Simulated assay, not measured.
Amino acid sequence: MIYDFYHRGDDTFYYRLLSLLEKKIPAKILEISRIRNEVYLVKTNQFWMILKGYNSYQKLKIQEAYTRALKQEGFTHTYQFYVFNEEPLIIDKKVFGMIEYISPHKDSFTYSSKRNRREAIQLLEQYYTVTERLVEIYKYILPSFHLMKKLEQRLEEFRSHKSIIEHYLKIEIVEEIMEWAEFSFCYLKNHNEYLHTKSNVILHGDVAHHNFMRDANNKLYLIDFDLISIGPRVGDYLQFANRILPNIGWSIQQLQKMSGYTQFFKEEWFLIALMYPTDILREWNRIIRNQDLSNEFLLEQVLYLTTDQYPKRKKFYQKLRQIVNI
């Protein structure tokens, strides 16, 4: 038996986990190793699997049922859960689910590749085609998508941190970021009915590159559905755009040409929503909230995010203002 629990310094946790797994899994456990917080790789003599902790039994059962429903509806580009018996595996108030292990491709998935960006958005479109059929089943189970609430909270928190942030950035840059966020938010708030005119799907909620992965046979998968909600697909499209814009040099033309975005570019609401600097606000709020400003590595990352492509981001904002003519 090989195990890696150095991060806990707690052999008791390891033995409890091993004991529970041996009772549930019909195979000999060979190795357990930590991938990240509350996520472990378990190797047996018959198969490998991912062990992931959830805050409640209900959340685990929703994930099990949802991924099973995706498969049944024809979306095969994701994992499934193993359910050997109904008795939950609970340690330290976490309920652990057992997920199919997908053997990864030798190259990590990133948005720096044009091919990856194209295939990711195509996979999301397939996902929405399926989840549109599941909305009626899950509308009383999953939360509704609340974009405006999220944007307002993010803006208010950033505003409260303004004096701190000005110790690290030029005041004029902080002021410009605030201007972009406030202009965008005020418009969206006054035109919130736009979201209610769109058909709902089940949004993924976190379309970062690490929630896509290729397997050893080059098949692309969509993973980690912890943040799923009911809402119009524009919610994920905005987030996806925000994630890839640095990789395409903040090019409006390149984004507009991508599958799914042509129609959105005809809508003023979407263009103004693109102006909201959600990534900058999110990361500054996080580093201050977690009291990590003394961590030089994390501070350098958030400073780089803010300043590295700032001129291109500013031109992007100005061009969008010209397009909408407001």
Score class of each variant (00 low, 15 high):
residue 7 H to M: 01
residue 87 E to A: 14
residue 81 F to E: 12
residue 100 E to T: 15
residue 11 D to A: 08
residue 100 E to S: 15
residue 87 E to H: 12
residue 101 Y to G: 12
residue 62 I to K: 05
residue 107 D to F: 00
residue 90 I to S: 00
residue 55 N to M: 01
residue 16 R to S: 15
residue 8 R to G: 08
residue 46 Q to A: 10
residue 88 P to W: 03
residue 100 E to N: 05
residue 17 L to M: 09
residue 20 L to H: 06
residue 91 I to M: 05
residue 93 K to Q: 14
residue 119 E to W: 08
residue 48 W to H: 14
residue 58 Q to T: 12
residue 75 F to W: 07
residue 98 M to V: 02
residue 56 S to G: 12
residue 29 I to C: 11
residue 93 K to V: 00
residue 86 E to L: 00
residue 56 S to A: 15
residue 67 T to D: 04
residue 16 R to K: 07
residue 48 W to I: 06
residue 24 K to S: 10
residue 114 K to F: 11
residue 9 G to T: 05
residue 109 F to R: 14
residue 30 L to S: 13
residue 21 L to R: 04
residue 112 S to K: 15
residue 55 N to I: 02
residue 103 S to P: 01
residue 49 M to G: 05
residue 74 G to N: 05
residue 49 M to E: 03
residue 81 F to Y: 15
residue 126 Q to F: 01
residue 8 R to F: 08
residue 81 F to D: 01
residue 13 F to S: 03
residue 45 N to P: 02
residue 14 Y to W: 05
residue 67 T to A: 13
residue 36 R to G: 09
residue 68 R to Q: 13
residue 96 F to G: 07
residue 41 L to V: 03
residue 86 E to T: 04
residue 10 D to Y: 12
residue 81 F to I: 01
residue 28 K to P: 11
residue 29 I to R: 13
residue 70 L to Y: 04
residue 29 I to M: 12
residue 120 A to G: 08
residue 104 P to F: 00
residue 111 Y to S: 15
residue 106 K to N: 11
residue 38 E to M: 02
residue 37 N to S: 14
residue 32 I to A: 01
residue 52 K to Y: 10
residue 118 R to E: 11
residue 41 L to I: 06
residue 37 N to C: 10
residue 114 K to M: 09
residue 124 L to S: 02
residue 70 L to A: 10
residue 122 Q to S: 15
residue 95 V to T: 06
residue 103 S to L: 04
residue 125 E to I: 14
residue 72 Q to D: 13
residue 82 Y to T: 00
residue 110 T to F: 14
residue 11 D to P: 06
residue 76 T to Y: 15
residue 111 Y to L: 15
residue 46 Q to V: 08
residue 28 K to I: 11
residue 126 Q to V: 07
residue 61 K to R: 15
residue 126 Q to N: 06
residue 96 F to S: 03
residue 71 K to Y: 15
residue 117 R to L: 06
residue 9 G to W: 03
residue 53 G to P: 04
residue 81 F to N: 10
residue 111 Y to Q: 13
residue 68 R to G: 10
residue 27 A to N: 06
residue 54 Y to L: 01
residue 113 S to W: 04
residue 118 R to C: 10
residue 27 A to L: 03
residue 108 S to R: 13
residue 126 Q to T: 03
residue 10 D to G: 04
residue 107 D to L: 10
residue 85 N to Y: 05
residue 126 Q to P: 03
residue 38 E to T: 06
residue 43 K to D: 12
residue 86 E to K: 08
residue 85 N to V: 01
residue 87 E to V: 13
